[in-house]
Amino acid sequence: MKKVDFRTDILPLKNKLYRLALRITLDSAEAEDIVQETMIRVWNKRDTLSELDSVEAFCLTVCRNLAIDRHDKKEAQNVELQEELHDRPDHSTPLDDLVQDERMQIVKQLFDQLPVNYREVMQLRDIEGKTYKEISTILGMTEEQVKVNLFRARQRIRDKFKEIENYGL
């Protein structure tokens, strides 16, 4: 494989990495920080990158691990996390500009309320359009486990939609 170039091989992944980090941390500033750290870490290992099958998958793995790490730390840090989560829709993130729509905000909240292992798998499959194999590589789990998590995540979303439909908001 040819030598890895930062501008052409790593930098264009910024949005995918950002979306994944944001899905896990639910904080745009932190997500940006994670992307930056991911890129620098990957770039420092550039000599070994040519041995990899996919630089993208590797970047996503590094990004996901960093994001999970920070998310866990944050969760362990305070009891007020739940409160913080409820406040979140008021904070403006770049996505909020895209989905000003109140209905979109509701779906976003449904996504945000999912456990982190469901959120990440839905992000990679339904938003990034990755195959089960790719997701299993990124997340370091079997394809079966990916499917189980995705199934549970989608079922939970479906239940929530049914709740909304039956009882309103």
């Binding site: 979306r19 989905v99 339904d126």
Partner: peptide, 19 residues
């Protein structure tokens, strides 16, 4: 709304200043 959201969320991006 679910599928529209999935589509909209694909456009979430970082700015030029990040580069």
């Amino acid at each position: 709304d679910l599928f529209r959201y999935e589509k909209a969320a694909q456009k979430q991006e970082l700015g030029e200043d990040f580069d």
